[in-house]
C-alpha cells in the first residue's frame, strides 16, 4: 500500500471537507479546495470519492455516527426514562447549535437546510432523526413503537426550540430540558400503563 492509499486518506479528505464547509459553506467549496486543504492530489481524491456530492454524503454519515456516539455516552448513566430523554434533548440541541458546518450554512445559505424542516421534506428528516434517537431509549422503554414515538416527540420539541427559542427558557439548560421532559414528554409517550408503573 502506498501512503496515499491508506484508510486515513478517506478520513483526511472528510476532515478537509468539514474545514472547507465550516469556512465558506457548500456552494463555495470545490473539490479542488478540499484536495488542497487535505494536501492530497485531485487524482487521489477521485480514487476515493466520486465527487463533491459523495464527499458531502460521507461527511453527513460520519457526523451522524459521531452524534450517535455522543448520545450513547450521554444516556449511559441515566437511571430513568426522564433522565435519558432530557440528556438526549440537551446533547442533541448542543450538537446542532455548536456544529461549525451547520452554523456556517445557516448563516450564509440557510435554504440548503430550512427545507429539511418544512412541509413535505420534514417527514423524511423526522423519521431519520427519530430512528437515530430511539435506540438510546432502549434501556427504559421496551415497546418498539412507543420508543419510536417518544423519540419523534423529543426531536419535534428540540427542533422547535432551536428554530424559535423561548426567550425565558433555553432548551440547552439541563433544568429546562428536564422540566419539559418530565411535565410533557414522558407522560406523552410511555403510555398509560407505563406511566402508572413509573409512578408506582
Amino acid at each position: 500500500m502506498t501512503p496515499e492509499a491508506s484508510p486515513d486518506v478517506r478520513a483526511r479528505l472528510l476532515d478537509a471537507t468539514f474545514v472547507c464547509l465550516a469556512r465558506v459553506g457548500i456552494a463555495k467549496t470545490s473539490v479542488d479546495d478540499i484536495a488542497r486543504e487535505a494536501g492530497i492530489s485531485r487524482a487521489t481524491l477521485y480514487r476515493h470519492f466520486g465527487g463533491k456530492a459523495e464527499l458531502l454524503e460521507a461527511l453527513g454519515q460520519r457526523e451522524l455516527t459521531r452524534l450517535d456516539a455522543v448520545f450513547a455516552a450521554a444516556v449511559q448513566d441515566c437511571a430513568t426514562v426522564g433522565a435519558a430523554c432530557s440528556v438526549l434533548v440537551v446533547e442533541g440541541a448542543e450538537f446542532l447549535l455548536d456544529h461549525p458546518v451547520l452554523g456556517t450554512i445557516l448563516a450564509i445559505e440557510p435554504t440548503a437546510i430550512t427545507p429539511l424542516l418544512s412541509l413535505g421534506h420534514a417527514d423524511a428528516f423526522l423519521t431519520a432523526a427519530a430512528a437515530l434517537v430511539a435506540p438510546h431509549l432502549a434501556a427504559h422503554v421496551d415497546d418498539d413503537a412507543a420508543r419510536l414515538r417518544g423519540a419523534e416527540l423529543l426531536v419535534r420539541i428540540t427542533l422547535s426550540h432551536l428554530q424559535s427559542p423561548n426567550p425565558q427558557r433555553s432548551i440547552t439548560d439541563p433544568q429546562v430540558a428536564q422540566a419539559i421532559v418530565d411535565q410533557y414528554i414522558v407522560p406523552g409517550f410511555v403510555g398509560k400503563s407505563a406511566i402508572e408503573r413509573i409512578q408506582a
Binding site: L119, L126, T127, R156, N166
Partner: peptide, 17 residues
C-alpha cells in the same frame, strides 16, 4: 407554548402516526 410548538410541528410533518 409547548402545545403551539407541537401543533405547528404536526401540521408540517406527519411522522409515524
Amino acid at each position: 407554548d409547548h402545545l403551539s410548538r407541537l401543533v405547528l410541528s404536526y401540521i408540517g410533518a406527519r411522522g409515524v402516526v
